[in-house]
C-alpha cells in the first residue's frame, strides 16, 4: 500500500486535509485498527488489507476537521445516503478509494484460532456481505489507490434464505425474536457503530415520555430493536458493522435485510445508496405506490 501512504503524506504535507482516517495494523484480530493520522511522518502506519473491517465513515459527522478517508465500495453507499439526507456534503471530505476483494469475518477468524491475517482470504473466513458484493471498487473516489479488483461472481445471494425464514407463522417469529433479543445487553453498539445512526438525540435517550424503556427485559429489548429496524428501513446499506460490533451475536441484519428486500420490491428496485438520484423511500413518495392494504 505504498501508494496509499504516499498519497496520504502528500495530502497532509500540502495541507489539503487535517486528518487522514484509515487503518493501521494491530496485534489483535482482525489485525487492524482505525487510524487517525495528522502528521505526514505517521502515514507509514497506514495499511489496507482484508482485516480492514471497520466502516470508518461513521466518524465523519461532527468531526470538525477536514478529513481524507479510506472507504471501501460497500461503505460508499452510506455516504450517498448521508448526502441525500443533507447530513454530509460531498465536498466536506476527500474520498480515498480502494479495491477490496473481501474482508474477514472477525468471529470466524477468532474461532479458527488464527494469529495473523491469512495471505489469501478463503470464502470460509469471509464476511457474508463480501460473498455477494457487487461493488468491489469504491465508486466516486477522489483518489484511487492500489489496483482495481476485478469483479467476481457472487457466491451467495443477497437475500438468500430470507423468504424461507420469514415463512414461519407470526407466533413463531415473535417467539424467535423475543428470545434472540432477550440476550441483548442494550450496549447500543449496533446504534453507535452504524454510519447512518447519527441522531444527536436518539429516541432511546428520551425519557419524558419514555418511548423505549431502558431496562433489559425481553419485551423492552424487542421494542428497542423494532424501533431500530424502523430507523434503518430504506437506509441500511448492509455494511454489517452492527452485527460485527454486537457482543452477543444478535443477527440484526436478518431483519434489516428483510425490510430492504421488501422495499426493493415495493419501491421500484430501490437499494440504499446505489443511486444519488433515487431518494430514500421514506423521504419520497409516488402517487402510484401500491395501496392494496388500504381499506
Amino acid at each position: 500500500m505504498e501508494q496509499l501512504i504516499q498519497e496520504a503524506k502528500k495530502l497532509l504535507e500540502e495541507n489539503k486535509v487535517d486528518v487522514v482516517i484509515g487503518y493501521r495494523s494491530s496485534p489483535l484480530p482482525p489485525f487492524t485498527r482505525p487510524a487517525f493520522i495528522r502528521r505526514p511522518e505517521d502515514c507509514e502506519q497506514l495499511v489496507f488489507n482484508c482485516g480492514s473491517v471497520y466502516n470508518l465513515t461513521r466518524y465523519l459527522i461532527g468531526l470538525g476537521e477536514k478529513p481524507a478517508i479510506v472507504v471501501k465500495g460497500c461503505e460508499q453507499r452510506g455516504l450517498v445516503v448521508l448526502e441525500q439526507e443533507n447530513m454530509l456534503p460531498r465536498d466536506s471530505y476527500l474520498l480515498i478509494g480502494v479495491g477490496c476483494s473481501g474482508q474477514v469475518d472477525e468471529r470466524k477468524l477468532r474461532e479458527g484460532g488464527f494469529d495473523r491475517l491469512p495471505e489469501q482470504l478463503s470464502d470460509e473466513l469471509m464476511a457474508d456481505k463480501c460473498l455477494y458484493c457487487d461493488q468491489h471498487n469504491t465508486p466516486d473516489a477522489d483518489i484511487f489507490v492500489g489496483d482495481e479488483v476485478e469483479s467476481v461472481e457472487p457466491r451467495t445471494e443477497r437475500y438468500a434464505g430470507l423468504d424461507e425464514f420469514f415463512a414461519q407463522d407470526y407466533e413463531e417469529l415473535y417467539h424467535h425474536w423475543t428470545e434472540v433479543f432477550s440476550r441483548c445487553i442494550r450496549c447500543y453498539a449496533c446504534r453507535n457503530i452504524c454510519p447512518l445512526c447519527y441522531c444527536e438525540q436518539c429516541i432511546s435517550y428520551v425519557n419524558m415520555p419514555q418511548w423505549l424503556p431502558r431496562s433489559v427485559a425481553d419485551n423492552n429489548n424487542y421494542l428497542f430493536h423494532m424501533r431500530r429496524v424502523l430507523c434503518m428501513a430504506g437506509r441500511c446499506i448492509d455494511c454489517g458493522e452492527c452485527e460485527r460490533a454486537c457482543p452477543v451475536d444478535i443477527p440484526l441484519r436478518t431483519l434489516y435485510k428483510r425490510i430492504a428486500q421488501k422495499i426493493e420490491g415495493f419501491f421500484y428496485g430501490y437499494r440504499a445508496g446505489n443511486n444519488r438520484e433515487q431518494l430514500p423511500p421514506l423521504q419520497d413518495f409516488n402517487k402510484d405506490d401500491s395501496a392494496d392494504f388500504i381499506l
Binding site: 417469529l173 415473535y174 428501513a233 421488501k262 423511500p281 405506490d289 392494504f293
Partner: peptide
Amino acid sequence: RRRFMILREIFSAMGIN
C-alpha cells in the same frame, strides 16, 4: 402510506400480525 406499508412489513417480520 409508505410509512405504514413498511411498518406492516416490520410487524410481520417480527411476528406481529
